[in-house]
Nucleic acid binder design. Sequence first.
DNA 1: CATGAATGAGCTTTCATTCAT
DNA 2: CATGAATGAAAGCTCATTCAT
Lengths: 200, 200, 200, 200
Amino acid sequence: MRTVDPEKHEQKRQQILTAAERCFLRKGFRGASISDICAAAGISPGHLYHYFASKEEIVDAMATRGLGEAATRFAHMAANPDIVGAFFSEFGRDKVRHRRSRIALSFEIVAEAARNPAMAKVLRRHYAHLRELMTGFFREVQKRGQIDGQMDAELAADIFICAMDGIRCLAVREPSKNLARGTDILKAVLTRLLAPAQTR
Amino acid sequence: MRTVDPEKHEQKRQQILTAAERCFLRKGFRGASISDICAAAGISPGHLYHYFASKEEIVDAMATRGLGEAATRFAHMAANPDIVGAFFSEFGRDKVRHRRSRIALSFEIVAEAARNPAMAKVLRRHYAHLRELMTGFFREVQKRGQIDGQMDAELAADIFICAMDGIRCLAVREPSKNLARGTDILKAVLTRLLAPAQTR
Amino acid sequence: MRTVDPEKHEQKRQQILTAAERCFLRKGFRGASISDICAAAGISPGHLYHYFASKEEIVDAMATRGLGEAATRFAHMAANPDIVGAFFSEFGRDKVRHRRSRIALSFEIVAEAARNPAMAKVLRRHYAHLRELMTGFFREVQKRGQIDGQMDAELAADIFICAMDGIRCLAVREPSKNLARGTDILKAVLTRLLAPAQTR
Amino acid sequence: MRTVDPEKHEQKRQQILTAAERCFLRKGFRGASISDICAAAGISPGHLYHYFASKEEIVDAMATRGLGEAATRFAHMAANPDIVGAFFSEFGRDKVRHRRSRIALSFEIVAEAARNPAMAKVLRRHYAHLRELMTGFFREVQKRGQIDGQMDAELAADIFICAMDGIRCLAVREPSKNLARGTDILKAVLTRLLAPAQTR
DNA sequence: CATGAATGAGCTTTCATTCAT
DNA sequence: CATGAATGAAAGCTCATTCAT
């Protein structure tokens, strides 16, 4: 009587996480209940506990997966030589409506991490990964002379991540004009902060 | 024989808000219950509703006051000609341990605002106020030639607020080295982004 | 240091009752709170307890007064030889919107009386009074041959009161057509039940 | 391995409704709390919400069932050719003591319906059903010549329901002699209002 | 694997009433 | 006479979690 196909198990887990993500986006991290998730996943509350030991575990797995996906998108972006264009297309005007709830979720994750060590660990791991990607990218771009060779690539990565967090924050603080302003701020960061000396 | 001192009423309100803030810092925005706040304020649950019509209203008043205090600190900072020094002392190493829960709260507020229109309104109001203060300050400093006269003062304010949000985010993402890194980032923002052309 | 003018005391009581009635009509018997009544009367909650020992007492006094006023209206109606016309003008189409909440209140009083002995007493007293008025009226009308001389006047009074309660009930059960139907029913009661034999 | 018996679900629902009815009869409509009902049904407060989404829904189901039972009783009554006998046995002296709280409840429902649209809807639905039954019955009896063929059967139904509401009201207004008086009034309604011309 | 019945503590809020001033 | 601060029990309802089947 051995455990059934571990592959199927993992598959179901992912299926549940997809349902959970939909709920989290719609209702928020705390706002989405186990019932909501079960209903969305089409399973019973009892059954959910075969796959996840607690709501926390769902939240952790969801955050890990969600942040992983974000990292993948960043990797794509980092691989694009036209970083400004890539960034803009990622934050592009027509995507934002769909993004609003994703931004909300990202701050819920940050807020959660600020209180909850398990979530903090998830976030820290994610940050390390993202930073590594960014640093590598900036080193490459420095070689090509597109950004200031004097600047520490790791610092540039941190600045960039900070800028994006800050812009997301701005999108919450002042929703009406976040887009245009985000663009301006990003442009300033890229041209003044990172650009090579002669082009500043 | 006039009606009872409205001053006392306000005093009690503030007393409750102080208790509420303590609870919010300790347990978080959603985590702190009305009961917690009442217990901390030393009043009965029913009595709280003589002073605030709902939990939302407490949150509103609390956020307004809390953010008001932040504005005051910024105003002080802005009045100090040595902006870097002022900023660093405000975000100084020895204050941060004490600040950790305050940072957590600030992101809880942002996360809340991303879902809850009432909270969004509070945040927007505060942002407008803060931005105005910052802009005025930057205009003054520009006159004195300490930052780039070419840069739009309002944009500088937005960048500064973004930078600080981003640094706070970093403090959550990577708690171990946030301080040093925050300092570096801020220095970069100030010297490369805002500094006058000849000093860059 | 003797009690102040008992006349003023009674005047204030009546003033509070008027405010209470407004609240009861608007929000219902149980729905209106002491706070509502105090606000409407322009006094403090504490002060209200100088005039009434409890909410029950207000309710009792209010019911007594309200039913007394109803009795007065009935007395008027009973004094009018054209009873049908009088009844119709009392239940007239244009008055009904204003009446709806009064009907609600009347059933709240009945419902209350069915559980609460004090209220039952109030209602019983009122009923005795009303019945006496009606009986006298029917005796008079019988002398004039406008209704069946064979019928016991007291029974006629009870039937009439029953009919009006039933019609009011109908007005709640089926609000859309209560008026026309009430008229039909009343007409049937008057012509078939009470009319003298030869005119039936 | 199908999902669990939906029959059991319905059975539990009915069990809860029975408990709720007991509570409503004992403490009244507003007086009976969710806790009371849960205690009476032997379930936890949380569990009740697996079966009913709100107190309103309980009330709705309870009223529907209770009024449905009333309709069944009426249907029985209507099937009995001796309508007077049937009615009297239904409202018979020995049943009334047991009925007192049921009468109270019926007026609480009417009072509730006068304020609460959801309750009004329930009552309206029931009234339409009851009226239909009554009308059909009267048509049948008219064919047999036991009541006046001239009278509109629907009007007769309305009159009958009004009479019964009025008599129930009387039972609250003057509890001591309601029974004898109710009998007299009903007799008058039946013989004078509904009886065929030659027997009046 | 899967169900959904069941729990029970906890949530925000209301309200009649009391009492020091 | 008059205030309104203060109480505290109770309300309806939510939800993560457990467990018998």
